[in-house]
Simulated scan of single mutants.
Amino acid sequence: MGRRRLIRMPFGLIGIGIVCLMVTTGLIWMGVVDDPFGGEPTAVIPLDATIQGVTSRDIEVVEIRPSLGDDLGPNLRPEGGESRLGPRYEFLAEPADPSSEGGLSLVPDPRVSERSEYGFLPKVSSDGIRPLDAYARPFETEFTSIPKIAVIVTGLGLSRAGTQDALDRLPVDVTFALGPYGSNLDQWMQDARAKGHELLLQLPMEPYDFPDNDPGPHTLLVSLQPNELLDRLAWILTRTTNYVGVINDMGARFTTTETSVAFLFEKLKERGLMFVDKDESARSIAGRVAAANQLPFSPVDVILDVVPREDDIEAKLLQLEGIARARGVAVASASALPVTIRQLQRWSRDLEERGLQLVPVSATIDRPSEQ
């Protein structure tokens, strides 16, 4: 070829042809050869069962310990262990009818109650017996290494149908929390304890967006003077009797204000009650203040029905089980919605077969500080 003809060759088309040939060869290689990445390590995991509605965001990565026997806290260990804040079952109030189904007292124990202008207030007896000791659901186990789960159903007494549904369907180790603005609370208290349920009382506390989001006319506010806060607290604590403690209703702002929390916890300790923290604010200091004041305390790890759909509740229950297996103890709260009650009933049927145990919330007070 002459020099002129060589310069006019289609180099662009030749280059495109070479690239197409390389891409075609690579595709054929990946389609024919089983390991197109040349020996990169792989693993195959068979999935024998799936849970609808569970996604990767719903699963908490937790540490699975081979033995939990030494990490369950004094209240979950055999007698004779360390000093504990949990209930002392030797001081349980005697039921009026020892043959009753639930075996729990239905009337105020005179040792741990006193009259006030609003009604019966809980108190610590002259012998140091607390309402927590008198009204706890007895909990005994020979297998301290079994992971424990406490479930609290809140809002009972506000809806007759919802409250009756919870009483009819849920196992006795589920703890019930009565709303202070409910009707016939004393009757619901007696019905629940007659079946054996341990009780809490909901304590309305100030959220960040108060008063747009208002828990009720007797809400504990950070702006209240001590005598005003005590008056509202007394009104709430006299709505019913025979409960072991209180659980906050809202309260994201209140539980981040140290002076208010410290004052409240001092008064709850004087009354011999426990405090359960739903931790609606990530900045809650309730746990730290409770530890400093030696107040019986238990935090909620999972709120089950933030999204009240079956798939979402199943995912939260799966997360709850993972926490219990990793830490030894886990606590959940849920509202008395029909979908939640159905899911809890179904979930609790074979709980022991899955190596887990349902317990009243008072049995979780002395868990180790892992959070």
Rank of each mutant, 00 (worst) to 15 (best):
I59W: 07
T257M: 05
N213P: 06
P46K: 09
T256R: 02
M205C: 04
V107R: 13
M250V: 11
V174E: 05
G182D: 11
G155H: 01
E82G: 14
I285C: 03
R342K: 12
R88L: 14
H197L: 10
Q357N: 12
D168W: 11
M189V: 09
M9K: 09
A136T: 04
N248K: 03
R232I: 06
S369G: 15
H218K: 10
T154W: 04
L304N: 03
I152Y: 04
T141Q: 09
P74Q: 14
D279K: 15
I14K: 08
F254P: 05
G182I: 11
A136G: 01
A324V: 01
T25V: 12
R8N: 05
L304M: 04
H197Y: 07
L273E: 01
A150G: 10
N75S: 15
D165F: 13
P226I: 04
L237I: 02
S56H: 15
P211F: 00
K278W: 00
T241H: 10
A291G: 05
P95Q: 03
V361R: 06
E60P: 12
P204H: 03
P204K: 02
V329L: 08
R111E: 10
V302P: 09
S369C: 12
R4G: 06
R309W: 06
L230D: 11
D249E: 14
K278V: 03
A324C: 05
A234S: 11
P66Y: 01
E280A: 02
R354D: 06
P108E: 02
L68V: 06
L318G: 11
F11N: 11
D209Q: 12
I28N: 03
M9C: 09
D366R: 08
R253F: 10
A363N: 15
G251C: 01
I51V: 14
K123G: 00
Q294I: 08
G31C: 08
R239Q: 07
R5W: 04
P308N: 08
R239L: 01
E142C: 06
K316E: 13
A93S: 13
V222E: 00
V172R: 15
P74Y: 14
L320P: 02
I18F: 07
E270A: 11
P204R: 04
R193V: 12
V261Q: 02
R5N: 07
V306N: 12
T364K: 11
I14G: 09
P296K: 07
R232K: 12
R271F: 00
D305A: 08
L200V: 01
V331T: 07
F275V: 03
D191L: 15
Q319W: 11
F37H: 15
T42P: 13
I303V: 13
D231R: 09
T238S: 07
A330E: 01
T256F: 00
Q164L: 14
D305Y: 02
A332M: 06
G26W: 04
L344V: 07
E258G: 02
